[in-house]
Design a protein around this nucleic acid. Sequence first.
DNA 1: GATGAATGAGGATTCATTCAT
DNA 2: GATGAATGAATCCTCATTCAT
Lengths: 215, 215, 215, 215
Amino acid sequence: MKTRDKIIQAALELFNESGEPNVTTNHIAAHLGISPGNLYYHFRNKEEIIHCIFDEYARDLSIRFQPQAEFDATAESLLGYLDAVFMLMWRYRFFYANLPDILSRDEELQRKYLQAQEELHSNIMVLMNSFKDSGLLDLDENELLSLANTLKLVASSWICYQTTQAPGAKITKGVIYQGVLQMLSIVRPLTTNEGKVRVLQLESHYCDQVQRDIS
Amino acid sequence: MKTRDKIIQAALELFNESGEPNVTTNHIAAHLGISPGNLYYHFRNKEEIIHCIFDEYARDLSIRFQPQAEFDATAESLLGYLDAVFMLMWRYRFFYANLPDILSRDEELQRKYLQAQEELHSNIMVLMNSFKDSGLLDLDENELLSLANTLKLVASSWICYQTTQAPGAKITKGVIYQGVLQMLSIVRPLTTNEGKVRVLQLESHYCDQVQRDIS
Amino acid sequence: MKTRDKIIQAALELFNESGEPNVTTNHIAAHLGISPGNLYYHFRNKEEIIHCIFDEYARDLSIRFQPQAEFDATAESLLGYLDAVFMLMWRYRFFYANLPDILSRDEELQRKYLQAQEELHSNIMVLMNSFKDSGLLDLDENELLSLANTLKLVASSWICYQTTQAPGAKITKGVIYQGVLQMLSIVRPLTTNEGKVRVLQLESHYCDQVQRDIS
Amino acid sequence: MKTRDKIIQAALELFNESGEPNVTTNHIAAHLGISPGNLYYHFRNKEEIIHCIFDEYARDLSIRFQPQAEFDATAESLLGYLDAVFMLMWRYRFFYANLPDILSRDEELQRKYLQAQEELHSNIMVLMNSFKDSGLLDLDENELLSLANTLKLVASSWICYQTTQAPGAKITKGVIYQGVLQMLSIVRPLTTNEGKVRVLQLESHYCDQVQRDIS
DNA sequence: GATGAATGAGGATTCATTCAT
DNA sequence: GATGAATGAATCCTCATTCAT
């Protein structure tokens, strides 16, 4: 593994653990047993490290979503997608715990983030539309858009929100799965009878996951 | 106006403008044309200023909610309450833009924040229950709880979320009203026919507000 | 009791408790429930407070010693004098715990201190000479001077020395009496047989005092 | 010479010159023409510098004393040892000029200091015992212990004591030798006739040293 | 690729002291 | 006599970043 990648991994780890503002470049270097100079050989500055971490995140995010292949198995596709989105958010949770601050410092990053958000929105729309086409959901265009917005908001805010709800809370995978459940609970009242069955199946799946994480 | 209050106001202003981590005690003092020593005469440290700002916020928040008086005019009560909650969040938006960081530094504040969150939750429950009692909403206990959780999440996250959605965006009152609309759009699909009428009225009210802000 | 005196007393108390450098003028004022401005109405600055405390000490010290009246009862005079000297040192112990620093800041105080030291030296000489005249001590002029120097050194250093010998030790009266014993143990080997009896009596007296303090 | 060592040397110099509380880390850095950041690159804080200085002192002190090798040449061993002890105290005199304050701030240092004091005590005992064994001294166990205590007190207090005895006095080597003479004058009256001869020889040696320093 | 010493502006905070009331 | 808000220079320390080797 290249030093450059090791820096990214170490930074990610430390940022998640202690919060980005509390992790200095010296911490990262010390954690890896390399010199600060070496770190700055690989990255122009701290910002660039964050940038790279975000790029990795965006790449990971894109890979997870192949709507075409999954148009038929709609419920499962949602499941897979939600899983992926939330897991990635967990992996890069430091970012979500400080979004406004991090973005305000770096216009370029702000741009990239918005792009990812748009992608998230369009992915959600694709999924919701395929739900509708399969007769699991019965909403007009406006209602669909509104739902998608809510889901995007919940997804994007979940980590930050949870971080503030418990004193010194470590965000575990269980917390992530609860986020998925929260989203499903928003979708459920809007589904057809057929859709409700599917959603309940999904909910029970994630309930199990939460249980597993706790024990 | 006492110096102590002027410090609180200046700090709030500057925090909102530039983000709490980017505003030093010296900035605040300079902004007011007072000496750093004087600032520290009135406050033990920066943390205490934030504490005081939060206390002011919590006090304001409590004052806004008098459920008893409003049990009959349910829709209007929701309107008034949402207005107040979002306006206060706007007034203290720096706080919401950095919640995880600010709370993680200060256990006492974390405690106070959770208390405010619980109050928010119970207020939402009171409102939703009065909606249900008035036949505007038809949900079982679980669904109601789930809805309340979603609304609380949206309310608590809106400012932070919006801060991240626009490059260098100043959060205006219009953005706030859009948050109310977002919440109403979550409630609407769950209302009875009678309820839907009320909600649409509210939505149109807030649409007007948003328009007014833009122009 | 006048405010001025209350300030002196409070300062003395706090200095002894926490060390002069760790006690601010604000501490003193707060301790008395008066304003810092008031403190500075009575004293030009912190130094002046220390000055006044020293003056009080010097005055107390002078009062204790009336050699003429006690020339006959030599052993008892020594006892009384040692008692007084050490008790005063205890009462003003903060001073002895920081002598070099305090004196270096204030030439005037340095002068006064040296005067007190000279007085101490001459008092010791008077006592030793009366011992010699009474046949309790058999030393030539040089040896006597040497002894006096040693005793002066021990007396002047005891508080400071003891402060450094125990972690976080509060200097109690028992510690003070041990200082007297230490001085007697220096005198004893130089006494005549008759003198030895007297010194042993004194030692047993102070041993009792130490015991009393411990229990 | 490494920067780290230069910092220690500069700190020691400045502390000795102006007193530790009056020398800031910025003074030290400026004195060396380095940045404050650089100083803090080498030392976590001011306390650590003092710690390191003390460690150097303790190391130096240990090295000086090899009792076994010198059991026979007792008088000369005392001479050598006293020389070393006092010279080191001179070299690190800032420390002795502020002992109570410095130790009260730092428990770890207090511990180390007490250890050094114990070592000093046991070294003095070894020397006194070898004197006794050689017939230079004729004291019972108690008297010996008492003497050792006095000598330890005088040695430990000498620098501080002298600092207070002269206005703005620079502590010179002559002052140090006077300390040795003071100790010898305490030992002399307790020696056998044979011992007295030896002590007088030593005294004359140190008298010469004092003369040399003055001129 | 890598080292690690060095920078220096800037941060929070303290405290003896002043002064208008 | 007394108040207490105000001063401001000074203190210790941090950290992103640079650069000679």
